[in-house]
Structure formats: structure tokens, C-alpha cells
């Protein structure tokens, strides 16, 4: 594919939920093989962006655009987007009572690929991925996310990603709730997948620079109040860790005010 078409391109994205505007013009570009980190205070709209990317029906896109491999995603439902290569590791994965992990994975894989996966190939891949994520065999007969600990849920999201092998993975706080060892295992999982699929892009949503020690980002972005207000290299995460969001928020408010004031004058 032409080098000029980015993997994921988000342009001036405005998203509202229940008539409240949460994202107010987000621009972001992820190229093949790149890792981008998205940070920002609670409630700034990070999960909203991840849901909007995946196509949650209640997150209304009022303007702007999302393109994956140059293709407009806005008219596609979540199922179609996943078939195009989008994957979201949920901040809060849902329980599906009575549906076993193995059945869920097999069905998902078949749906994403559009054809049945030979059972032996599936079993082999599943066994390898689970071993790498240090998950026990009994796990496959448990019901999806039912009674999972916080850490198990996150590991299971990574397992799904490893099985589905998406073009771009949006990971919403996959590191939160993980102990140090689990963080290591999960990060290794992501890195291994990047090695075998060097074209895969990653958008890491996180509060902690710790994760970025394991998965090195090409860029770090800071989302405040629905807008990306700063972008930089991995050293930006270190700066945030040391100084917090205060100064960035103040700067952002100042620039918001600068925009808002003249508009109010014209009313």
C-alpha cells in the first residue's frame, strides 16, 4: 500500500454523548508499525475516543473523520470495523455468562476472518498464546469475563488481541489493575505481537509512564478536555510523571478561553 496513506487517521473529530460534547476536535495519525501513547486526566475523553473509534452506537460523531487504511469508518458498525482490522482492548470488559472463552474466541476469529479456522491451527495458536501470557489451560472453559479478577480480564483482552491479530490495537488502560509481574507479561505479549506483525499500529491509553518503559512509544499525546493539547516523544511521559497535568491544563484553558472569547463577543 502507498506509504503516504497512514494506518489510522483521525481528523477534527467531534463526539457527543447525550447531547454533551466530549471530544472537541481530535487530530491524530498513526502510521504502520507505530506505537502512540495517549495520556490525560480522568474524564478528559480517552475512553470516549476509543469507543468512537470502535463505533459504539451511543457515541455520536457530529463532525470530523476516521480513516483506517484510507477507508472511511464512520458508516461502519463495530463488527465491520473489526473485520477491517480495528481492535479495542476494553477498559471495562463485559461478562457474557454461559459463553466459554474457547467458544467466544473461535467465533470471534471466524467472524473477523470471514471464514472458519481449522480447529488444529486454532488450538495450536491458542495454546501458544496462552502459554506466553502465562494463563492456565482451565481458563478456556471459564465463561467470558465472568468472575475474572481485574488482572485476568486484562490478560484476556490481550489474548483476544493476540488471536485476532488486528491491524491496529487501541488499548484502553490495559495496564491499570495489573501487578508488576502481570504488567511485564502483558507488555511482552504486545511486543511479541508487534514482532510477528510489524505493520500493526498501537494506540496505548494509559495514566502511567511505567508501561512505556516496556512498550516504547513513538509519540506521546496529552488529551485535555476533549482535545489533544500536546504531543511529543517518549520524554513527554516522563515530564508528565514528574510535574502532573496542572500546567498543561492551565495552558489549555487559556487557549480555550482565547478561542471562546471572540466568539462570545460576536454573539
Amino acid at each position: 500500500m502507498a506509504e503516504s496513506i497512514p494506518l489510522l487517521k483521525i481528523e477534527d473529530l467531534h463526539v457527543q454523548i447525550e447531547d454533551k460534547e466530549i471530544l472537541r476536535g481530535v487530530n491524530l495519525e498513526v502510521k504502520r508499525g507505530e506505537v502512540h501513547a495517549l495520556m490525560g486526566p480522568n474524564g478528559s475523553g480517552k475512553s470516549t475516543l476509543s469507543y468512537a473509534l470502535m463505533g459504539h452506537p451511543r457515541y455520536e460523531i457530529t463532525s470530523g473523520n476516521i480513516r483506517l487504511n484510507g477507508e472511511d469508518l464512520l458508516d461502519m458498525g463495530p463488527d465491520e470495523r473489526s473485520r477491517k482490522g480495528m481492535f479495542l482492548a476494553f477498559q471495562y470488559p463485559m461478562a457474557i455468562p454461559g459463553v466459554s472463552v474457547v467458544n467466544f474466541l473461535r467465533t470471534a476469529l471466524k467472524s473477523v476472518r470471514g471464514q472458519d479456522v481449522p480447529i488444529r491451527e486454532f488450538r495450536k495458536d491458542l495454546r501458544e498464546q496462552m502459554a506466553a501470557l502465562q494463563m492456565s489451560d482451565q481458563f478456556i472453559s471459564r465463561y467470558v469475563n465472568e468472575g475474572f479478577s481485574g488482572g485476568e480480564k486484562k490478560r484476556f483482552e490481550i489474548l483476544q488481541m493476540a488471536m485476532l491479530k488486528p491491524g491496529i490495537a487501541v488499548m484502553d488502560e490495559t495496564d491499570s489493575g495489573l501487578d508488576i509481574d502481570a504488567l511485564r507479561v502483558v507488555s511482552d505479549g504486545v511486543n511479541r505481537l508487534r514482532e510477528t506483525n510489524p505493520e500493526m499500529g498501537v494506540l496505548l491509553i494509559t495514566h502511567y509512564q511505567r508501561l512505556l518503559n516496556y512498550i516504547t512509544p513513538d509519540q506521546v499525546h496529552v488529551l485535555v478536555n476533549g482535545r489533544i493539547v500536546r504531543s511529543g516523544g517518549k520524554e513527554l511521559a516522563l515530564e508528565l510523571e514528574a510535574e502532573g497535568y496542572d500546567q498543561i491544563i492551565r495552558d489549555a484553558q487559556a487557549s480555550d478561553a482565547a478561542v471562546v472569547l471572540p466568539q462570545e463577543v460576536t454573539v
Partner: peptide, 9 residues
Amino acid sequence: FYLMSRGLT
């Protein structure tokens, strides 16, 4: 939504 994000209609 969770299931559809995994490709299921």
C-alpha cells in the same frame, strides 16, 4: 457492543 467489536454481527 463488546461482542460486535470482535466481529460478530
